[in-house]
Every structure is written in structure tokens, then in C-alpha cells.
Design a binder for these strands. Structure first.
Length: 351
DNA sequence: GCTAATGATTCCGA
DNA sequence: TCGGAATCATTAGC
């Protein structure tokens, strides 16, 4: 199937159009004129110039317009429009999927979540975080609405343009669909950029609130007491096992790594300032001794049943003759030597 | 505002 | 990978 256009230099003539059974063979002058008009109009700008208007009028009256457009439309459908969508077009972009998932998880897209930035963050921090997240969510939705409106507007504009052009050009439905799909794809790329920047904003917000250095909080008094108690009652070997750390973390409502940090800091600062640390150690030893004197066995058993950690500590003090005695006495010559266990601490007797 | 205390991080060595 | 040491960054007390 071929469609030859008459050459303007030779004056044309003799062109035969025989593509389809239903299309008449066009060899008369009116067809030549029609072809020439079509060629002329394709070189025109799309504004409503007089020439375009004239051609439109001429075309609309031509009885050959419909069959010619049918043929041209079919050629288009078989060539340009039949190009199969690429692999990328068919498959959902994993990056977009990731962004969608993140926005959904953070409550920016989909149903709003009353998310928290960190379980131990204060109420005001949580409120501040939620407010900022809500701002991001609002901006995202506003922008998304704008993009969708713009996309609809532009799509309608193009549709109208194509409908208008359909009077002078063979525009078939698949072509229109393809055009719309291209527009939607372009807008989807812009939306992706919006999603990307929204995700970045959420990550910045989270990191700002999660950055422990910026928002360092002292542990509660109770937590510090528990950690100090453990430290001074295990002064000969202040290296809690993983299980002990987990238990301390649970009791203090902090993380295991915070327990590790605390013990790391404690050991180093204890060694740096033994004099002061010994005072503190004596205080905790005295506390223990006092508790041991006034608590009867039943009370201890009850407490122990409720708190396995304290249950295990009592015998430990007896054993540790190394560092403590039950009268609150203290053996400084031994307690400062815990670094003999460095890198090979003996198994902890926490449990 | 200054300073000590304190929790976290980083670097390094074993 | 863990712990020591140094350091950073923030908090709390004055």
C-alpha cells in the first residue's frame, strides 16, 4: 500500500490511490486539489488564518475527505500508533512505587496517621512533629490537586485542539488516546518530582527529630538509679552481658545501645574520677545495706518475684566480697581494677 | 551566660 | 565486634 503525492515541480498527475476497496481511485483534479490543500495546511501554523479557514471549508465540503481520512487514519494506526508500548511504559516504575509506599507509610498520602517520631520523645515534640508532618501533607495534597487540575485542563485543551484539527487532518481515536496518555505520563513525571521532594522533606523532618544529639534527654532519675545500682554492685566486673543489658534496658525503658553507651561512659568517667566515683559507690552500697537490714525475707521474696533483677542482685553482693560487703563497706583496692577484664570480661552473673 | 554533667558519636586497637 | 578514649552536643543548675 502506498500513497504518492503529486510533485509540485512536475505538476504531478497520474497519482493512483488504491489502498482499500472502499476508497475510490482518485485520479481526477478534485483529488489533486484536495491533496494540495492538505499539504498546504500542514505547513500552516495552527492559528485561524484565512487560508486555513478556506481549506477547512473546502475540505468539509469535499466528498473525498472521509474516505481519504479513513485511509490516512489506517496508515497511521498501522505505523506510528501501532508501536507497542516499551517495557518501561508497561511496568510500574519501582522508584514511584517506593515513593508511594513511603508516603503511605508516613501518612502523607492516604489516610492520615497520628505518627510518632520516637517513642521516648516528649509530648510537645510529638505535637510539633505531627504539626510539621501535617503541613507537609497539606502542601503535598494542595500541589497534587493543582497538578491534577492542570493535567485535566491541558488534556481537555489538547482534546479540543485535536477535535478541531480532525476537520483538516486524519486524527483517529487511538491517536487521541496516545496523545492523552503522553500528557498524563508527563504530568505523572512532575508528580513524581513532587513525591520525591515530599519524601525528602519527611526524611529531613524525621532525622531532625530523631537526631539524638540535637534532642538529647537525660535519663529519668529512676533509670539512672537502676544503672548505677547495677554498676556499683558489679564494680569488679561492670560489663553487663547482652541479657543483662536487655533487662536493664527494659527496666529503664531505654534501648540496649543506650545501656551500652551508659556503661561505656560510666566506666571511663569512673576511672577518670575515682575519688568522686567512690563516694557515689559508697552511697549505693549503703543504700543496699540499708535495704538488706530492714527488709525481711518475705518482703525480699515478694520484691524478687516482682523484679527478677533485684532478686539476682542480693546473692551477688555476698559473693562479691570483691567490692562490697553488706554493711556498706567498700574495698577500693579492688573496685578500680575492673579493667583487668577488658576484652575478656568473665561471664556475667546477672542471671 | 557560664560551666559541669551527661548521652551520643567517632575513631582506634585488640 | 566490643570497649576505651576523645570529642561533640545538649541539658541542667547556678
Amino acid at each position: 500500500m502506498s500513497l504518492e503525492y503529486p510533485s509540485s515541480s512536475t505538476g504531478g498527475g497520474g497519482t493512483h490511490l488504491t489502498p482499500m476497496n472502499q476508497v475510490p481511485v482518485a485520479s481526477d483534479e478534485s483529488f489533486q486539489l484536495l491533496i494540495q490543500q492538505l499539504r498546504a495546511i500542514t505547513e500552516e501554523t495552527l492559528d485561524d488564518s484565512t487560508q486555513v479557514k478556506n481549506v477547512k471549508n473546502a475540505l468539509s465540503k469535499s466528498r473525498l475527505r472521509q474516505p481519504l481520512f479513513t485511509v490516512l487514519g489506517e496508515i497511521k494506526s498501522r505505523t506510528v500508533l501501532s508501536v507497542a508500548p516499551t517495557h518501561e511504559e508497561k511496568e510500574e516504575d519501582p522508584q514511584q512505587k517506593r515513593l508511594d509506599n513511603m508516603l503511605l507509610a508516613e501518612g502523607v498520602d492516604g489516610p492520615e496517621k497520628c505518627g510518632t517520631v520516637a517513642p521516648d520523645a516528649s509530648g510537645s515534640d510529638q505535637a510539633d512533629y505531627r504539626k510539621r508532618l501535617s503541613d507537609i501533607r497539606k502542601t503535598y495534597h494542595d500541589e497534587m490537586i493543582k497538578y491534577n487540575d492542570s493535567c485535566d485542563q491541558f488534556t481537555n485543551h489538547v482534546k479540543n485542539l485535536l477535535r478541531d484539527q480532525a476537520s483538516v487532518r486524519p486524527i483517529v481515536k487511538p491517536e487521541m488516546d496516545k496523545m492523552i496518555s503522553i500528557i498524563e505520563k508527563k504530568f505523572s513525571q512532575i508528580q513524581m518530582q513532587l513525591k520525591q521532594s515530599t519524601c525528602e522533606n519527611v526524611m529531613v523532618l524525621r532525622s531532625r527529630f530523631l537526631d539524638a544529639r540535637r534532642k538529647r534527654r537525660n535519663f529519668s532519675k529512676q533509670a539512672t538509679e537502676i544503672l548505677n545500682e547495677y554498676f556499683y554492685s558489679h564494680l569488679a566486673n561492670p560489663y553487663p552481658s547482652e541479657e543483662a543489658k536487655e533487662e536493664l534496658a527494659r527496666q529503664c525503658q531505654i534501648t540496649v545501645s543506650q545501656v551500652s553507651n551508659w556503661f561505656g561512659n560510666k566506666r571511663i568517667r569512673y576511672k577518670k574520677n575515682i575519688a568522686k566515683a567512690q563516694e557515689e559507690a559508697n552511697m549505693y552500697a549503703a543504700k543496699k545495706a540499708h535495704a538488706a537490714t530492714f527488709n525481711n525475707y518475705t518482703m525480699q521474696a515478694t520484691a524478687a518475684a516482682l523484679n527478677p533483677y533485684s532478686m539476682l542482685q542480693a546473692p551477688d553482693l555476698h559473693h562479691m566480697g570483691a567490692g562490697f560487703d553488706l554493711t556498706g563497706g567498700y574495698a577500693p583496692h579492688l573496685v578500680s581494677n575492673f579493667d583487668v577484664y577488658k576484652h575478656s570480661p568473665p561471664s556475667n552473673n546477672y542471671g
